[in-house]
Design a protein around this nucleic acid. Structure first.
Length: 497
RNA sequence: GCCACUGUAGCUCAGCGGCAGAGCGGCUGAUUCGUAAUCAGCAGGUCGGGGGUUCAAAUCCCUCCAGUGGCUCCA
């Protein structure tokens, strides 16, 4: 139907008129009729609702029309329809399965983390959760060492003036926690960048120091709106595998290409699927349009040169620069941003950063802000959903459990426990008060990657029966074989036990 | 923050104006067991907090807090 016709038909509906206006000039304005029902819609529609045998309502919620708060909310009712009841049942089964992988439920069952009503949005990490986060940090730090980073630690609170310089005061204040000390206003840092800028500026810098790479794993605080909080994936306090690279114009491309390589390597280790987005200049931006255009073009050129498929997210850049964002999805398919590479010409200028070049002149460096896994908390949340809590052995809080069949096998079990502890494994020994079947079941429920059973046969033959997570069969190995095998799987950061 | 919904034992949930329950977990005892739950007993609760209606409130109403699903926003 023509645009004019549509506008006439929906003349009394301001929302529909707005949709019609938003349809780009070249595209067709489509309109559907199903029985007595008619509507403006991008479509397609089923020709007849009789085609839908299995119908299920998923829920309803308010949506804010025109993307503005304060406007009258509309109610959205969401549901799904399938040609057959069986297809609907299958869909609901898959959905229930996905819900069972919810990281919030797994976090509680596996005693990884918890939340207190008295501190909404601030995760409390239990002993098991700390083990996993420490291993993730170790994984990242190994790379930092290889790639020539230095690690810094800067203050959690900065005076207002620092944020005025960085631009956060004008562009990010509503997301910040503020504290008044001795009549001065301090802000809890929402990002690490100001601290790194100040360290760079703390003394004279030479071009010989560049690229200068400062990593920082400090807790960040962001006052997220209460309704947006979500388990570990959206919190008010978190730690990122953050770093700031101070580079010359020529060093931008090799540095970013190296980062893209590392992203692929890092995410492959977890068998995650990820996607790239190029986020461009937002409405609320710092600096000159030309500088932004150049920065966006640089990122786009590097993406193309690296043969990477990406989507463009117009206006989604940070207030100080465009960025390449990495997204991964949770068990219900909701996308979460993890890694990001941001090209920043603004903060170096605003902080007055300079280095002396080979020409003897002072130059302003460019800063690349980058995180790979993003927030460790969010990453753990998505990883739990991705694995259903079956973390790779190198991340598992309990890597192995020794199960003596009866009390008489206890001495041998203790010996094995000691040996594996010597090897650096996180290993436990169960008592024999519970039946072996029950202990095997518990270990599966707790997602322990390796079960080591010792009975008469094993003790006599100085062997161990190894049952790996998810397998119903046991393999008999000698102790040296077992130790070598476990150590190797963990050392290589194998995804499966 | 906005709209809707939900908060009962450590966990999962039943009860929905008339005596606060189950399973799992915990504790105690018995059982010593060969790869996904051995048996028995016991303990455990200001029914999220506060206020109201009622002879009587876990149950009805108001309010605050927290959570869930979306929306807006974002690592």
């Amino acid at each position: 139907m023509s645009r004019e016709e549509a506008e006439r038909l929906f003349a009394r509906n301001p929302y529909k008129l707005r949709y019609i206006r938003d349809i780009p000039p070249g595209e067709t304005v489509s309109y559907y009729e199903t029985g007595t029902w008619s509507d403006l819609c991008r479509g397609p529609h089923v020709p007849d609702t009789g085609w839908l045998a299995g119908v299920h309502l998923l829920g309803f919620s308010a949506i804010t029309p025109e993307g503005r708060e304060g406007t009258a909310p509309l109610q959205r009712i969401r549901g799904v329809g399938f040609p057959t009841e069986a297809a609907l049942k299958e869909y609901l089964r898959l959905r229930a399965e996905a819900e069972a992988r919810d990281h919030r439920a797994l976090g509680q069952k596996l005693e990884l983390f918890t939340f207190f009503d008295e501190s909404p949005g601030f995760p409390a990490l239990l002993p098991n959760g700390v083990i996993v986060l420490r291993e993730l940090e170790r994984f990242v730090r190994e790379h930092l060492a290889e790639a020539g980073y230095a690690e810094v630690r800067t203050p959690l609170l900065w005076a207002q003036s620092v944020y005025e310089t960085s631009g956060h005061w004008a562009h990010y204040q509503e997301n910040m926690f503020l504290t008044v000390v001795d009549d001065r206003t301090f802000g809890w840092k929402p990002m690490n960048c100001p601290g790194s800028m100040l360290i760079f500026r703390a003394r004279a810098r030479s071009y010989r120091e560049l690229p200068l790479r400062y990593a920082e794993f400090a807790p960040l605080h962001r006052k997220e709106a209460s309704g947006t909080l979500h388990g570990l994936t959206r919190v008010r306090e978190f730690v990122q595998d953050d770093a700031h690279l101070f580079v010359t114009e020529e060093q931008i491309e090799p540095e970013i290409r190296h980062l893209l390589d590392w992203i692929a390597r890092a995410f492959s280790t977890f068998r995650l699927r990820w996607s790239y987005e190029l986020s461009t200049r937002p409405a609320d931006f710092l600096g000159e349009r030309e500088v932004w255009d150049r920065a966006e073009a640089t990122l786009e050129r590097i993406l193309k040169a690296s043969g990477i498929d990406y989507r463009i997210s117009p206006g989604e850049g940070a207030f100080y620069g465009p960025k390449i964002d990495i997204h991964i999805r949770d068990s219900l398919g909701r996308p979460w941003q993890t890694g990001t590479i941001q090209l920043d010409y603004q903060m170096p200028l605003r902080f007055g950063l300079q280095y002396q070049g080979p020409d003897g002149q002072l130059h302003t460096p460019v800063v690349v802000h980058r995180v790979i896994l993003g927030s460790f908390e969010r990453f753990l949340g998505v990883l739990l959903e991705h694995t259903g809590g079956r973390l790779p052995p190198w991340l598992a809080p309990i890597q192995a459990r020794v199960l003596p069949v009866t009390e008489t096998h206890m001495p041998a079990a203790r010996g094995l426990l000691d040996e594996l502890r010597q090897d650096g494994l996180r290993v436990q020994l169960t008592g024999t008060e519970e039946s072996l079947s029950k202990r095997v079941r518990l270990a599966e429920v707790e997602r322990v990657p390796y079960l080591l059973v010792l009975g008469d046969k094993e003790v006599a033959g100085e062997t161990v029966a190894l049952r790996t997570r998810g397998s119903r069969e046991a393999v008999v190995l000698t102790r040296p074989e077992l130790r070598a095998r476990l150590a190797e799987r963990i050392r290589m950061r194998a995804f499966e036990p």
